[in-house]
Amino acid sequence: MISAMNWRALVFCLLCVSAVAYALTAPDASGFPEPSLARIIFFHLPCAFVATGLIVHTAWLGYRYLATGDVRYDARGAAATELGAIFAALTMATGVLFSKVQWGAWWQNDPRQTSFLIVLLLCCAGVALRAGLSDEQKAAKASAAYSVATVLPMLFLIFVLPRILQSFHPSDTISSGKLDGAYWTGVLLVFVTLVWATRVLYKERTAISENRYGNQLDPDHPGSASPYPRRPVAVSKVGEEEER
């Protein structure tokens, strides 16, 4: 009998295999100097989608943490911040690779490329801020406030700025017919696979943070499940000891 966990692993493996198979068998893109290498988009676009989703999710968790003080939100926020930075870095790396093979240079000063670099820097700054504060409560609050404060500039950089300025990155590459319509299927397949993988990593990373918080996560039983020794605390009225 296959357990639920094995089922999930099996489906995930099938997703991975089908995503790779689809990417390799999809027709070459037209209108690109290196049509076969336009397949980078299969990975590049989903990474950007996942990174953007994680950025918004981090800000939401930061807001919830500041509003409620519930450390579960901070544990999830820490995970989302790190994963967001990782996916933003992957988006950047694949974008730079695409730029080299299709446009002939690693860096194009393209508005979208530049604005996403700043998004990546903001994500890294969020990670650095959390790492820079040794007091975990301060780190949690500061990271939460930073994620809330930076979400609007990031959304501006992702969605608004590249559309104000002329970019190498037309938003209608696929719909205009430069890429085969079937590319959307590939992008979607990889996106689902990445979301699945992200969810697993997110859960694992959150569990690490939650373990650090220990029994604070159970407000109904403060101290009841402590793995740490309880130090002796005594309150006595002055003079009682002498009387005894």
């Binding site: 007091d135 403060p222 101290g223 740490y228 020794p229 309880r230 130090r231 605390v233």
Partner: peptide, 12 residues
């Protein structure tokens, strides 16, 4: 209760 890192200074 207050702890620094994993070390509790006092509890309950």
């Amino acid at each position: 209760g207050k702890r620094f890192g994993e070390q509790w200074v006092f509890r309950n």
